[in-house]
Amino acid sequence: MIERITLIGRHGCELLESLGRAGIFLLQSMFARPSREGVRLWLVQMHMVGVMSLAIILVSGLFIGMVLALQGYTILVDFGAEQALGQMVSLSLLRELAPVVAALLFAGRAGSALTAEIGLMKATEQLSSMEMIGVDPLRRIVAPRLWAGFVSLPLLTIGFSVVGVWGGHLVGVEWLGVFEGSYWGNMQESVGFIDDVGNGLLKSLVFALVITWIAVFQGYDLVPTSEGISRATTRTVVYSSLAVLGLDFVLTAVMFGGLS
């Protein structure tokens, strides 16, 4: 019995310790003095993290918008309210689906890649040798990746929403014959720029922070073996997906649930 309690205590201590390490790590790399080549390194990472994720995000956004329109139409038409299709598609995209689905895809596409890349650098002693050359890997390797992640995901989320709304238009208006004016008109009537677009972006900014933080820290803190890298990559995807879904609930409650 005492052993059990000790075990729980040990796990608790380890958890706190790694949370503390992760926090210090985040602050040190975010506020690291940017290196001389900082902008160029950031650009390279924007390419790796952002541009390379664009295709999967846009294609998913298109399909989700189309499916939303299709499903929404079959329900709304029963109430004779198919004019509200635009409203339904755009609100579900802006408030929920775009930030969350884009974040989940981003965790799978970019987060795991970040973990594996940094982990491999650690396993092959590249991080150590960089330290010994007198270059802080937090500044040189980690910081550009963190900032690229923070900037990319909100941009990708915007892309997801735009393509999704267009996909909804494609199915709803072009195919199912909802009147075009009421598709856009109802949408504009009900969507608020700050309330819906702004809050959606705020969500995706929070998700971006959490995902890149988890991904980069898992890579930096892993056990430098091939098993360690595979475990850390898995952990990145699992932890960030759970964090995104959990935080989404909290943020939704605060933003739209009247808790504020």
Binding site: E125, Q126, E131, I133, G134, V135
Partner: peptide, 23 residues
């Protein structure tokens, strides 16, 4: 301090067992 340590390391070189070249 962290910064002073990195400055001092510029005066050192280290050859790692694996070479540790930037791939």
């Amino acid at each position: 301090s962290r910064n002073a340590l990195f400055r001092m390391r510029r005066r050192m070189g280290m050859l790692f067992q694996s070479g540790a070249l930037f791939s």
